[in-house]
Design a protein around this nucleic acid. Structure first.
Lengths: 193, 193
DNA sequence: AAAATGGATTGATCTGGATCAAGACTTTTA
DNA sequence: TAAAAGTCTTGATCCAGATCAATCCATTTT
């Protein structure tokens, strides 16, 4: 259950066997069926979760009722609404499973205790957050500076795994374009080759 | 020189006098004139800087030669290209001063040593990065989900200070719209009132 | 195995915001 | 203090991508 979890953590900080045992105590396992919600808009986000298996997405719904995907999380990724998780305020996001998923969950209390008890986890999260900032910044630049086609090509480049596993209409939402536009872009690109 | 600096840090983690003295040793002061570069595209970002006074911006230039502003940083904010800073790779950003500025700079070596020597600074940056993720996520949602007018209104809401100090053409670039569009939006909004 | 649901494609049309152009006003620079 | 550069506004036109609509398959569900 914790295999992938510690593999990922030990890539960034090296935990002793004792630290691993300590860390384990803060997490609870959870299974989620396809289409099942982990979080619905209006609820506070009570858990930060690590994805052991499956794929989750987070999205918000705009004033016209259109869904906009904020993130995907597949094996080895974290998911949650950090703002709501930390503040306790109601979340503006929905999180659900795109594929059946197995998760490890931690509460805010657990998270804060863990930071104190296992300082190496504080380091792990500092590094994780650094990387998260970098990838959000890349995405923001894509979104502000590039055309729909360029955005798609950057995604192909940076996250080919996503395109293998996620339906194109969801990929389009993630890129901030319509499924029709994405379909036309892909057609154009295959013809070009 | 370090007044604002420690005020900000102590809002998140409380440093003892001894810790403050230790932290100081990792930073060097720097003044920047308006329009002067802190970083130019192609160079590695050697310093993370804290703004004691003035305003900086970071921006990239797209294939058509158009500038896109990634961030502003005024008093009490940090600035740098975190990706380039951490990896040592050449940066794709430019950073320059919009107003004369006074900065405190730290190198990557300094940063990493400081994390070890003053663990409370590791905590400070973990929290800083958390908040940074939250604000980037907000901005990403703005950018993907909202119209130009809604983006502007959200900025008025979340960062009124920015609009006081920064020319509108730069605000437009930050919002990912043209100065003409921003001008028309503002006209429409004042008429509406 | 029939019906319902979800995903992808293609065509026709529409539109928010970009682009191009010009003028007014203000701040720098020489 | 004159000229140049930067900032903001307004008007006319254009276009990338959205919207609306229909069809085709592939999976689920019953």
């Amino acid at each position: 259950m914790f295999d992938l979890f510690f593999t990922h953590i030990n890539q960034k900080v090296n935990l002793s066997e004792a630290e691993q045992q300590e860390v384990k105590t803060f997490f609870a396992p959870k299974k989620l069926r396809k289409r099942q919600y982990l979080l619905q808009e209006g609820e506070p986000c009570k858990y930060l979760v690590f994805v052991e298996k499956g794929v989750l997405r987070s999205y918000n719904v705009d004033s016209k009722g259109v869904e906009h995907i904020i993130h995907f999380a597949m094996e080895g990724w974290w998911m949650g609404d950090i703002y709501s998780f930390l503040s306790g305020d109601p979340s503006g996001y929905n999180i659900d499973a795109i594929e059946d998923a197995e998760l490890l969950m931690i509460t805010l209390d657990g998270f804060e205790q863990m930071m104190v008890k296992v300082p190496r986890m504080e380091r792990y999260f500092r590094i994780l957050f650094q990387n998260n900032i970098i990838s959000k910044e890349r995405r923001l630049i894509s979104s502000i500076s590039y055309t729909a086609e360029e955005k798609y090509l950057r995604l192909v480049e940076s996250s080919p795994e996503l395109l293998q596993r996620i339906p194109l209409n969801l990929v389009a939402s993630y890129l901030g374009i319509t499924p029709e536009t994405l379909s036309r872009i892909r057609k154009k690109l295959t013809q070009k080759k």
